[in-house]
Simulated scan of single mutants.
Amino acid sequence: MQHWSSHSAKDDAAPPADLPFSAGEYAARVTKVRSAMARQELDLLLVSAPENICYLTGLDHWGYFAPHLLVLPMNGELVLITRAMERVTVAAQVRHARFAGHPDHETVADAACRELAGRRLRRVGFEPRSSGLPMALGLALQAACAAEAWVDASGVVDAIRMVKSPAEQACLRQAAAVSDAAAMAAIQATRSGASEAEIAAACLATMAERGTYPGFGPFIRATSRLGEEHTTWSRARLEVGDALFLELSGCVARYHAPLGRLIHVGHAPPEAHAMASVAQDAFAAVVASLKDGILARDVYAAWQGVVDRAGLAHYRRHHCGYLVGIGVPPSWTGGNQVWGLRPDSDLMIRTGMSFHVLSWLMGTGQGDYFISNTVLLGDQGAQVLTQTPTDVTIR
């Protein structure tokens, strides 16, 4: 079992062909988490959020529908607890945590209590706000495992994940290329008479060929369902005059780079061009405002300022984007909490963060348009990673 107090130059070499990151990359992540644990005086952290387990171990599978726990002590080996049937998958993907499987007549809490038995635990951090820890299991852990204090550490790993390493940024760039290819496939399949399902099939085929399965499937819906935020394709066929909402993300090593466009069938109404201009200008204002140290609410203000000056001061959004990166089904947002560029957010923007920036002008009363892209704040400033054209598109 590898110890995490140090790592050799060999650990920083390119990872095996079947693994996305080097041992050194994972070691650096664990070191950062342990530093955060030390600031909270935690003896041990029980990680249950699928995105955080993926971040710290590399485990990438659909088995997260069943609760997992990663036992991360301040010193010593990591232990990954899942159903026993996941043994082969874990052995193939995880190099730096011991596997502890439990039979299906037990819960992950039963297995965790066995692992923790005999340890002197003063302060134990856990993730009660995680989608991966049902309330019943959290209560069972607290009842059966002796600890002087249980600490809500739900945001410890999430905060570290916000800033992407160079290796993570490379995955984002690859995912953006998949997004652009999938968007182009969907746009080329869009025409009068085509069904939403046919467009989805073209999009998904490209995703499968060039990347892996995304956290969300593509959102594809026509005029009658434009306002349905998280529904996707039906068997309905497009007609001349329809607008088609398209939002999707390529995925590489669980990293996502979403984009969104509004496509018109046959022709676009005159007001679409005016709204497209406003959406593009507001998007550019967001990109220009993204700088290290600025607050998320000030980024939103930059977007809203353009919208207001365009005569749409009545129009407000809950956010103009959110942080994006690792995503595990059923979402690409990084978990069940969305870290948005909201008008009330005091989140501090840092170099290395990546965002799905949305310039959404739908239901304004003066026309509709929508564009979104993935933006990375790098050392040289904010860069738009997805490059699908943002002008009014008519098919």
Rank of each mutant, 00 (worst) to 15 (best):
V265Q: 09
Q337R: 13
L312Y: 09
L290T: 03
H319P: 09
D292T: 05
G327E: 11
F283Y: 13
D346I: 11
P329L: 11
V299S: 05
T333A: 12
K291V: 14
L323V: 08
G293D: 01
A284M: 06
V278R: 00
A282Q: 00
F283D: 00
Y369R: 00
A272S: 09
D346R: 15
I326H: 06
F283C: 04
I263L: 15
M362H: 11
P258G: 00
H267E: 14
V328I: 13
P330V: 12
W339S: 11
G321I: 00
D368Y: 13
S359I: 06
I263Q: 03
N336W: 07
A285N: 06
Y322K: 10
H264A: 14
V278P: 00
A274I: 08
K291D: 05
P270H: 11
G334Y: 04
V306K: 06
Q366E: 13
H314A: 14
M348R: 11
D346T: 14
R297V: 01
N336P: 01
G340F: 01
Y322V: 08
L377W: 07
I349Q: 07
L377S: 03
L312C: 07
L312V: 03
D281M: 01
L312F: 03
G293F: 03
V375P: 01
G311D: 12
S277W: 11
S289L: 07
G340P: 04
L323P: 10
D346Q: 15
L259P: 01
L312D: 06
V375N: 00
R317Y: 00
V265P: 05
D344N: 15
T351R: 14
I294G: 01
E271K: 07
P330Q: 09
G363N: 07
K291A: 13
I371E: 08
H314Q: 12
G352V: 11
D308F: 05
Y300P: 15
L358G: 06
P258C: 04
P258S: 03
